[in-house]
Amino acid sequence: MNEEEVTEQLKRDFPEGIFDFAFPRKGMLRFSADRDRLKDVCTRLKDIGFKQISLISALDWREHFECVYHITSYSFGIVAEVHTEIPLDDPKVDSVTPVWPGANFHEREAYDMMGIVFEGHPDLRRILLPDDFTFYPLRKNFREGE
């Protein structure tokens, strides 16, 4: 499968909930998914052949958070970049650790740095910062030295 075929497949499986498809360069597929459809989309992606999760980045856009999942398929040579918007007042999203065990540390890091709670994560603790920290340093409203 190439990028277009993956896109069509996904569009067939999820008539709504995923949007904004784009192909930034060869071997890369970018789209957005709704927060509540994310886990289903990820499960489907894994079934198609996206076996490895490369990276989970959490972004703070001031109006909302965003989680970006980079999911790799070695057999197709494609990276799928899935964007998910998360509201500021309810920073929760379904964990994809049950789908890919490799997401474990990435989600812990995102929780550690940005305070996004991954529901269904087996062991959501701080990973890089000490356990007794009360703040999330990568949020834009975090002021150093206070």
Binding site: S54, L55, S57, L59, D60, V68, H70, P101, G102, N104, F105, H106, E109
Partner: peptide, 25 residues
Amino acid sequence: YVVGNGGESPYRLKVRSPIFCTMNV
């Protein structure tokens, strides 16, 4: 994963370090 918003510095920069992921296993 770099996001730039037209400023002098990146808006967000995320590193994927291989051993961080390998520690998982």
